[in-house]
Design a binder for these strands. Sequence first.
DNA 1: TCTGGGGTCCTAGGACCC
DNA 2: TCTGGGGTCCTAGGACCC
Length: 425
Amino acid sequence: MPPSFALVDCNNFYASCERVFDPSLRHVPVIVLSNNDGCVIARSEESKALGISMGAPFHEVRGIVHRHGVRVFSSNFPLYGDMSRRVMATLADFTPHMEIYSIDEAFLDLSGMPGRDLADYARCIRETVRKWTGIPVSIGIAPTKTLAKIANRTAKKDAKWNGVFDMRNPSLQGEILHRIAIEDVWGIAGRLGLQLRDAGMDTAGRLRDAHLPSLRRRFGVVIARICQELRGVSCLPLDRVETPRKQILASRAFGTRVTEYQDMAEAVASHAARAAEKLRSQGSTAGAVMTFIRTSPFTIRDAWYQNTTLASLPSPSQDTAILISAALAGLKRIFRKGYRYQKAGVLLLDLTRCGPTQGDLFTPSDPAREDRSRRLMRTMDAVNRRMGRGTVFHAAQGVNGRWRMKAGNLSPAYTTRWSDLPRAR
DNA sequence: TCTGGGGTCCTAGGACCC
DNA sequence: TCTGGGGTCCTAGGACCC
């Protein structure tokens, strides 16, 4: 028996989250913007129909927005994260074998569900998620993850399937795959798509029927694997355990351009602190800190400058103070006056699980100091968790925040802040 | 005036070793 | 006047995903 994967994907997830708590948004076009209200990252069906494309800079679609009364939201990630947890918890009721693939997608392994029609089962999942969370989902079923992605797409695009499409039948696969453009296959985008098209493979069907050894030679293992998956040979197993991140990035575009070192330093310190928080929450330490700054890649009028610097720590750490000072030391090396900076970030690397570490011969360890640091971090995290992010912070992060991002159309934190709880009347 | 943020995996090529 | 071959490890950069 080949395996059966189901891909559950939330429809227009961020836009749907906004709708759950505001019924006036039903049946009207809704869009959600990226940080800084920069570009469009989610669209309701009505907005798609108006021709607003994914990733479009907001200023380019402003005309359509005004003409059609599109409701616009700044991204509200605490809300979306919380809704995602609810959806995933609901799915977990239906199978123990599940991989949370992204904030709005999960693969379920439905192999060996005894005595059930899987499409029926999927319809039941879909209805339950809608009832318990208010979020509409689509479900595709197939013998491999790559095919399940395509099945899901079909479920979503073609209304006659009512949100659930079972593509386990091989002759059905043949039919569908010839209608799927090569760039719509999971793992193939612009660059590879062009190369495959050049080689005569313009649809998923053509890629599936290619000569495997030549494909492997010319395009590498990744494409060969996709080819196998399209043939129904499962190469990508369900990844059930949540693996700790191998690197942690905190970066933001600025609300307004930054020109002064002091503002930049506060921003970099804040990113370092946020990255450190994430680091501790997954129980890791970092061995190296990378700092980067850059001007806008879009504005031709301004001089372009970008630079990156990497600092290894004498010994791995998860102490915010240590990570901030490493990031700031890096910033000093690369900051140049006279540029209009648009973005900065801090990347933590060489992550290892906490525990006994290899000491450095030249920096004798100081157990008392390390213990103090651990207790301080634990306390800070606890306070910020309880009282809200940013209740206690390091002085280097500053308080004026001229660089902080814009969020002009933010919805309330309906589910994560007491004062924003929706009221029923 | 205005263009996101956070990840992963793979590969090629250099450094280094024997 | 003459200078090998092969393995491993690391890193940077490319490509992709949501």
